Simulated scan of single mutants.
Amino acid sequence: MNNIPNISFDSSEKTTDIEFLRISELFERVEENPNHDPLKPHRITFFALLIVTEGEGMHQVDLENYLLKKGSVLKIAKGQVHAFQENLSYDGYLVVFTEDFVLKFFSKSTIDFISHLYNYHISDPMVEGSNFNESFLALIAQELNYENTYAQRNIIAKMLELYLLKLERVSHLAISTKRNTEQYPLFFQFKNLVEERYMDTRNVKDYAEYMSVSAKQLNAVVQNFTLNTAKHFIDEYVVLEIKRAILSTNNSLKEIAYELGFDQYNPTS
C-alpha cells in the first residue's frame, strides 16, 4: 500500500554513514540519475539536517509546511516523510548521517539529549536563532579539505555531536532533569515497535508483552517522555500514517483504512 518511497543512505563520495552536500548539489544529482524525486514525499532511513544559508522558502515534513530562511535548521529524523518545494528559493547544506554513525561515535549522554533524532513525535523539527551554523559548516569544510585524514571521521563526528547539542540548547528541547533517562531504552523500543507493528495491533497490552513488561509499566514509561498514555502515542502514530497514505496514494479512505489494518472494511464490497 505504501506509495511513499523509502530513501536509503547513498553517498556520491562512497562513504557509508555521513555526508555533507549543498542543496543545489542534491538536485544536480537528481538530474543525472532521476530515480528519486525530492519534490515528492519520501521517507528517509537516516537522519538529516537542512541548514539554510541564503534565501527563504518552504519545506514539508510529515504534512506540515515550515518556512525556512537564512539561519534556519530543520531536523529530519529517521522514518519521517519530507519533500522539497518546487522552484527552490533557498540554498544551504544537507548533513545526512545514519543511525549506525550516531551509535558508533556519539556518547550515550549526548544521545539522551538530542531528542528529535529519536523522538520526533513530541518535538519541533525547526530551530531558529542559532548563530553558529556558519562556523560549524566552515569547520567541517576545513576538516574535509585537510590532507591528513588521520582520525578524520572521529573529529567530524565530535563536531556534529557538539553542533547537535548546541541546537538542542537553542530550541529549549533538552531533556528535563526530572525525567528518568534510564527509561530511554524502553521508550525507544516501544516507539520502534509501534512503527514496525502498528498495522498488526494497536493494543497496549500486545506491545507490553513484546517488551516483557506490564501495561502499567509501559504507560508509566511513555508518560515520562510524552505526558500522554501509550494508547495515545499509538493512536497519534496511526493518524500520522493515515495522513501520509492520503498524501501519497489515490486510494479511497476505506481502502487506506483496510490496508492499514482496520479490517472492518471489505474491499470486495
Rank of each mutant, 00 (worst) to 15 (best):
L68K: 06
L68P: 05
L68W: 06
K69G: 07
K70S: 13
G71H: 08
G71M: 04
G71P: 09
S72M: 05
S72V: 07
S72I: 08
S72N: 05
V73N: 11
V73A: 13
V73H: 11
V73I: 15
L74N: 02
L74K: 10
L74M: 15
K75W: 04
I76K: 11
I76R: 13
A77G: 08
K78L: 06
K78G: 09
G79Y: 15
G79T: 14
G79A: 10
Q80R: 14
Q80S: 12
V81Q: 07
V81Y: 14
H82Q: 06
A83L: 12
A83M: 12
F84L: 10
F84N: 00
F84H: 11
F84D: 09
E86T: 07
E86Y: 00
N87L: 07
N87Y: 04
S89H: 09
S89K: 13
D91N: 15
D91R: 08
G92K: 09
G92P: 10
Y93G: 11
Y93I: 12
Y93L: 11
L94G: 12
L94Y: 14
V95S: 03
V96G: 05
V96W: 00
F97P: 03
F97L: 05
T98M: 12
T98H: 07
E99C: 01
E99G: 13
D100Y: 07
D100P: 05
D100E: 15
F101L: 01
F101N: 02
V102P: 01
V102D: 08
V102E: 02
L103T: 00
F105S: 00
F105G: 07
F105N: 06
F105K: 08
F106E: 08
F106N: 01
S107V: 05
S107K: 04
K108G: 01
K108S: 00
T110S: 04
T110R: 02
I111D: 04
I111M: 01
D112N: 12
F113Q: 02
I114L: 13
S115K: 13
S115D: 01
S115Q: 09
H116Q: 14
Y118W: 12
Y118R: 08
Y118A: 02
N119I: 02
Y120R: 01
Y120I: 04
H121N: 15
H121S: 14
I122S: 14
